[in-house]
Design a protein around this nucleic acid. Sequence first.
DNA 1: TTGTACGCGTTATCAT
DNA 2: ATGATAACGCGTACAA
Lengths: 346, 346
Amino acid sequence: MAEITIKDIARRCGVGVSTVSRAINNHPDINQETKKMIMDVIQESGYIPNNSARNLKRVDTKSIAVLIKGITNPFFSSMIKIIEEETQKKGYSMELRHVESYEDEVDIALELVKEKRLRGIVFLGGYFSHSEEKLGMLKVPFVFGTVGAAPENINKALYSNVAVDDFKESKKMTEYLIGLGHKEIAILTAEPGDISIGKLRLEGYKAALKEHGLPVKENLIRKMEEGTESYSMENGYQKTKELIESGESFSAIYGTADSLAIGAMRALLDAGIRIPEDVSVAGYDGIELGDYYAPRLTTIRQPVDEMAREMIKLLFHIISGKEEHKHLVFAGELLTKESTAEPGKK
Amino acid sequence: MAEITIKDIARRCGVGVSTVSRAINNHPDINQETKKMIMDVIQESGYIPNNSARNLKRVDTKSIAVLIKGITNPFFSSMIKIIEEETQKKGYSMELRHVESYEDEVDIALELVKEKRLRGIVFLGGYFSHSEEKLGMLKVPFVFGTVGAAPENINKALYSNVAVDDFKESKKMTEYLIGLGHKEIAILTAEPGDISIGKLRLEGYKAALKEHGLPVKENLIRKMEEGTESYSMENGYQKTKELIESGESFSAIYGTADSLAIGAMRALLDAGIRIPEDVSVAGYDGIELGDYYAPRLTTIRQPVDEMAREMIKLLFHIISGKEEHKHLVFAGELLTKESTAEPGKK
DNA sequence: TTGTACGCGTTATCAT
DNA sequence: ATGATAACGCGTACAA
């Protein structure tokens, strides 16, 4: 049961441990023949270097970590792919770590930096309600992605972020619906306590209504229950059902996430309400599924590829000291599909 | 920039390092007051123990790892939740690790065991085409989940697995469609080289046809392209489109994954084909989305909760030496929804 | 109850 | 090009 170590390999090869180490790590100062011999022995013995020991000793780990919160978020995977490509181009390695919703991503980042000697961090998702103090403890550069807007209480010189302007895009979507002629637009939004993208998207909606002289009816604003996973199809379904049963009049529903909008569509169909003839439905995010649903979902697409590319570029610039932290805002794209139409066709 | 270590804490507290260590690890032999004092200093100084060093020293890590292949697979998350609960009940900790599709889960397991001194491993997903040799190098017990059937070439005493019988369930679904009166049933299945669940589900389909005296038409068997992500909506869409354009006659499509079936439905709808009036569609897996799509998807649900519970129970039994490896088979559940009906209503 | 000292497996440094 | 050896940060046996 005794684990096989570098010493065992050295002994079996009749060389010193440092030579074995050099063979493993592609060190230049080593005879190609001895290297091959050592690698052969390693192969056949099934030796695997102990990563803990390596990390303990290593000083020059050219690596970064990507922390992802919210496995459900479907557009992270394409972002990751891009980040990984760019990271490898720089000769760095990338550690991917998923963060459960109950975990604190900054705590995990702190641990990871110690453990793996990282040079930088990318945060994807998460709700950005961290104390400046904790963030300050993170001694490596970090970049936030897909965070609606930077909270005012944190020193902007401490970090970078890349995002679409959730307020503006949400307003854009609402204005599109208004432009179609809708006057009673229901919205499905995050739980009451939300201070992140949920709030911003809701504010954008309200601003659009006000600017066009439409009343903001509290009864049309449906917030998710506290403690549930906000942006789920189930929530969208449930809240839409409640809305329908309330008897409140509306000609459009705007789900502040595509998943909510899909739940809403199912609820409408269950009630025998046609989309978009009776009620229009719009989402936000631009997930793949929206294009497969029947009807195809009108939504706001975030330019995830570009965003990912900028994030990683920014991170490496900061690591190399070329640049200060930045706060980039990208424009979303309104995708008009089959789920929205002019009202009053009924 | 110098990282703060346990020695610094010891110095600042005026105690020895072992006392600090005892404080951190809830060791019994320590004065509660000194412990509190130390913890306070740790808090304020922001000290974080170096995990690499800890793993290097520790012998008695009561922990297991869960390796997940295929982030896209939506029912893993509920399995993980259950596994985590049970693991904590046993006083163990659980390490969750996602495995990219190009990574080898056994290699990663090998590394992880060395690095973290794990006591057991759960493999979720993955395609189980590993060499017995490599598997033999894994010195801790492991359990495979959701693997259709164990390959014959591997010694069954080496591992456990928990699965539904993909062959049988797939046959069940096909027979259901036949029972409705369908005689020309198209199937969307994995890439040609698949030797895992894809193959089993295809075999189940063929067996059902043969038993009922129906011909197996190669033209109705649509395999995914090599090198793409097999079970994607996009693939389902594309292959169904090709099927329609081929002019081949069929009254039902059976997607061997719900995602494929959803892609198929979109393609049918795009072609102006009604579901289920013109063509019935069935899936496999029982993902949440199937119940939100319009029409709701007929599918085979895997009893993931029970399976997860059994997997972890099994693993701990084997760890404690109470039991030998086992190979459990669970029954799937046929969920008949709105996407299937008798043919010929057109 | 507490402190000292050793060693975990590896890499970096220095000598050869 | 290679080998001996000192760290890396921590847990723990043992001494106090």
